[in-house]
Amino acid sequence: MPDAASPPTHLSLFLVFCRIGLTSFGGGISGWLLREFVQQRRWLSEEEFLNGLALSQAFPGVNVSNMAIWIGYRLLGTWGALLSLLGIIVPAAFLIVGLAAVFSLLQRYPLTHVALTGAAAAAIGLSLNMAVLTIRRVPRRAGPVAVMVLAFVAVGILRWPLPWVVLGLGTASVAMAYRRLGRRS
């Protein structure tokens, strides 16, 4: 793990997740988490973060919640996981209820829809940034590149159901990695 200016405390971790939960709209949160925990605070290395991201996307449930739990647990154990999850969910839930009430009053104004479109564009940009970073980190071997291309074609072009693609390609990817590790030892 890279040198951090100061290790996280339970309160600082909770507050970081509160801020992220309250200021993240419409996706792209992985990019925000990367920037916060790897680039700015240096509490995690890029490799640790990407490993956690892969795990959080492989497990059932909401990726953001899974990632908050993983980061919290990695940094401060069980209490860190609980505080991270509460930090990213609870304040945002109150904000969403408040925004829904406000949006119901403002939905007839075109500027409201323009603002939501802008927030969606920013989220897409953060997601694209995360995708580019992840692609740069994929080992330049035929197996991982083939899995990446097949996943794109299967889901993006052929529109195959995501669970079956993940099950099939995930199993193939794990088998390839296991075989490669077996050759090393």
Rank of each mutant, 00 (worst) to 15 (best):
M1L: 07
M1H: 05
A5K: 11
P8C: 08
S12E: 11
L13C: 04
L13M: 07
F14R: 04
V16N: 10
F17I: 10
F17T: 04
C18A: 10
I20Y: 00
L22V: 10
L22C: 14
T23F: 15
T23S: 08
F25N: 04
G27A: 07
G28T: 03
I29T: 08
S30M: 06
L33K: 00
E36C: 01
F37S: 07
V38R: 01
V38W: 00
Q39N: 12
Q39S: 12
Q39Y: 09
Q39H: 12
R42Y: 02
W43T: 05
L44F: 09
L44P: 02
S45E: 10
E47W: 03
E47N: 11
E48N: 07
E48I: 09
E48R: 15
F49V: 11
G52Y: 06
G52L: 06
A54G: 14
A58H: 13
G61K: 10
G61P: 02
M67V: 00
I69F: 12
W70K: 00
I71G: 07
G72N: 04
G72A: 06
Y73I: 01
R74W: 08
R74H: 12
T78D: 14
T78K: 15
W79K: 09
G80A: 10
A81F: 04
L82F: 09
L83N: 07
I89T: 14
P91K: 01
F94G: 09
L95Q: 08
L95K: 00
G98W: 13
L99N: 12
A101N: 09
L106G: 06
Q107R: 13
Y109E: 14
P110W: 14
H113M: 11
H113T: 03
V114T: 15
A115F: 13
L116K: 03
L116G: 03
T117N: 15
A119T: 13
A121F: 04
I124Y: 04
S127Q: 07
S127D: 05
S127P: 00
N129M: 12
N129F: 12
M130Y: 02
L133W: 04
L133S: 11
L133Y: 04
T134D: 02
R136G: 09
V138W: 06
R140N: 08
R141W: 12
A142F: 13
G143C: 03
P144M: 00
A146D: 01
V149C: 08
V149E: 07
F152T: 12
G156P: 09
P161E: 08
L162Q: 14
P163V: 08
P163Y: 04
W164M: 03
V165E: 04
G168D: 02
G170N: 09
G170F: 03
A172E: 03
S173P: 04
A175Y: 11
M176V: 13
A177E: 07
Y178M: 03
R179D: 02
R180L: 15
L181W: 14
R183M: 06
